[in-house]
């Protein structure tokens, strides 16, 4: 039997909040958030102290969808993790049932929101991560992400097929349970560790990743990877 593809109902959408961190994304952020707004989702976008016109572009989009787009502004850049935490704190105030977190650079396919929400809506899981198929990645990214998976496995004892994904969905109750207190890209692994420690049921779904030259320049590269590793070691030793 072929199961019909799951689509979020209007009611589900109303109970969902997107959290989108944006840092220097003036050229890419608008289509992403406007397409999400078109689908009827509400979202919190955190401008993480961008040095370009990201904030201006966000305001322009907010003008078009004043009921869907909420903007928060970090006055100086504090990192991906800090932006996500700010966004999630703000989302919690609205008491949504589901919180979805994705990147602002357009590397995620908006249609995948249905996919990552399905296990939450159907009650199969409390947290979902959208995993990128590694075989589709450029080789350097593939290698970097494989290393990060290994590190996450060693230091945090969480074995997932994509530890550094920026696409995740979590229920309100589960988000209340966890306390991620990090600033940078390590937040991806930190979420997994917290899910694990708080016995939050996690499910993986495969997502489409759109790789363009722009989206490739950001994210996990060797420098970020080493930084994450040191942070992990520090956490294991001192916290």
């Amino acid at each position: 039997m072929v199961e019909k593809e799951f689509v979020m109902s209007k009611k589900d959408k109303e109970q969902t909040f997107m959290v989108i961190p944006a840092y220097n994304e003036e050229n890419r952020v608008q289509p992403v958030i406007e397409n999400i707004a078109k689908l009827g989702y509400k979202m919190i976008i955190v401008n993480d102290g961008s040095s370009d016109n990201t904030l201006k572009k966000l305001k322009q989009s907010q003008e078009k969808y004043p009921d869907n787009i909420f903007i928060l502004n970090h006055i100086i850049n504090r990192g991906m993790g800090a932006a996500i935490r700010t966004g999630m704190d703000a989302a919690l105030k609205h008491k949504p049932k589901y919180i979805v977190n994705l990147d602002a650079d357009g590397q995620h396919d908006i249609a995948d929101i249905n996919k990552v929400c399905e296990p939450l809506v159907k009650g199969r899981a409390e947290a979902v991560i959208g995993v990128r198929p590694f075989k589709d990645m450029p080789r350097s990214k593939n290698f970097a992400n494989s290393i990060m998976n290994l590190l996450t496995k060693i230091f945090y004892r969480v074995d997932v097929s994509d530890s550094q994904t920026g696409f995740r969905a979590i229920t309100y109750d589960a988000l209340k349970k966890i306390d991620v207190d990090v600033e940078g890209y390590i937040i991806a692994s930190e979420f997994l560790r917290q899910f694990n420690e708080n016995n939050i049921k996690l499910e993986e779904v495969t997502i489409t990743t759109i790789y363009t030259p722009e989206t490739q320049s950001k994210g996990t590269n060797a420098k970020v990877g080493i930084k994450i590793m040191f942070r992990m070691i520090k956490q294991i030793l001192f916290e």
Partner: peptide
């Protein structure tokens, strides 16, 4: 200091939502 700074920036952001 970095952590304190993040806390301040986050606090300011959460208190000053940009409304249309």
């Amino acid at each position: 200091i970095q952590q304190d700074m993040t806390a301040i920036v986050r606090e300011i952001a959460l208190k000053n939502e940009i409304k249309y």
